[in-house]
Design a protein around this nucleic acid. Structure first.
Length: 110
DNA sequence: GACATGACATAAC
DNA sequence: CGTTATGCCATGT
């Protein structure tokens, strides 16, 4: 009951993150209806289809890449993000600017 | 079934 | 901006 259904819910949310925007693990977990499973989101991403999921748009609550610096994924993530116009500096992004506000659109930025 | 892990979050120093 | 401590919970040993 936990696994597959939860993963699907998570993937669904992740697929919803707009280009050039990022969301935190906790945020995704909440939107997926799994408030306490921020950690599971990471697992779900790893289990998902990296070619079909915008996994790179998910980072921790501090807007920081949650992968070991220098690791392949780390570089890949920053690359993909920059490719979408997201400014990544020292492995982190400004959530004030690129953070995704589900539902409510942000009239000022962007 | 106890124990250790981890792509997390939040709060307090 | 950094470190420490706690809470959480699915997974793997």
């Amino acid at each position: 009951m936990t696994t597959n259904a939860s993963y699907m819910a998570i993937w669904k949310v992740v697929r919803t993150i707009p280009r050039g925007r990022v969301a935190s693990y906790g945020q995704v977990a909440r939107l997926a209806g799994l408030p306490k499973n921020a950690r599971l989101v990471g697992v779900a991403l790893g289990a998902g289809d990296r070619l079909k999921l915008p996994w790179h748009r998910v980072m921790n609550a501090q807007g920081r890449i949650a992968l070991p610096p220098n690791s392949r994924g780390y570089r890949e993530q920053s690359r993909l993000l920059r490719e979408e116009g997201v400014i990544v500096t020292k492995g982190k992004v400004d959530l004030k600017r690129f953070g995704w506000k589900a539902g409510g659109e942000s009239p000022l930025l962007d």
